[in-house]
Amino acid sequence: MTIASVPHPCFFYGSLMEPRVLSSVTRPGPEADIYTVRASIEGYIRRPYHGAPYPGMISSQDKMQAVEGLLVFGHTLMDRFRLDQFEGSEYTREVLSVKILDPVPGAYNVEDGHKPLSPGDLVQAYVYIFTGPFEHLDQSREWDFGAFQRDHLDVWMKTSSDFENDS
């Protein structure tokens, strides 16, 4: 880990699971060493934001409920700053336990220099939790990543001021 790296990986459960969105937000340089693995977090639910293509994740009364997403290793402090700005005031960054679902190869496969990471292991990760107002979320349904990619991604990437447009 370099001095410019953040101490925890980041867990993403919404639009930032899409590589184009994540890269547009963090703008990693050519020297970036980012690795992504599927992961999940228990005790939370993911709900769509009313009138927007992204979700919010909130605590669930069912502690066995899980949200699947991506665990991303290798972000710098500047990347995290950009993520904080992107998430805005309705989301709070917390450090929570996230379960790894796939093997973690290479330089990222050791937690705190002690043991290799394996599927099923828990790691501490930065997670952006939705903090309200809760009426902004549609509590009647689960957010659908496939629908986001199919129905919203291309238009969002071209029109959102959060992203750098190369065209």
Score class of each variant (00 low, 15 high):
T2V: 07
S5C: 03
P7Q: 06
P7L: 06
P9H: 02
C10F: 08
G14C: 08
G14F: 15
S15H: 03
L16P: 01
L16R: 08
P19F: 10
R20Y: 11
S24W: 14
T26R: 03
R27G: 05
P28F: 08
P30N: 11
A32P: 03
A32T: 08
D33F: 10
V37H: 01
R38D: 11
A39K: 09
I41S: 01
E42V: 04
G43R: 03
G43V: 06
Y49G: 00
A52P: 00
P53Q: 03
G56T: 03
M57Q: 05
I58G: 00
I58Q: 00
S59I: 08
D62H: 10
K63D: 03
M64N: 10
M64L: 11
V67R: 06
G69S: 07
V72S: 04
V72H: 05
F73P: 01
F73N: 01
F81K: 10
F81I: 13
F81L: 15
R82E: 08
R82A: 12
D84Y: 07
Q85C: 14
F86W: 15
F86T: 05
G88L: 14
S89M: 14
E90F: 13
E90M: 14
E90P: 08
R93W: 12
V95F: 05
V95Q: 01
I100H: 02
D102I: 10
D102Q: 15
P103H: 06
G106I: 05
G113Y: 07
G113A: 04
G120N: 07
Q124C: 06
A125N: 04
A125M: 05
Y126S: 11
V127F: 04
Y128K: 11
Y128P: 05
I129Q: 10
F130R: 12
F134K: 01
H136G: 09
D138Q: 12
Q139V: 10
E142K: 13
D151F: 15
H152Q: 06
D154H: 14
V155C: 08
T159W: 09
S167E: 15
S167G: 08
S167Q: 10
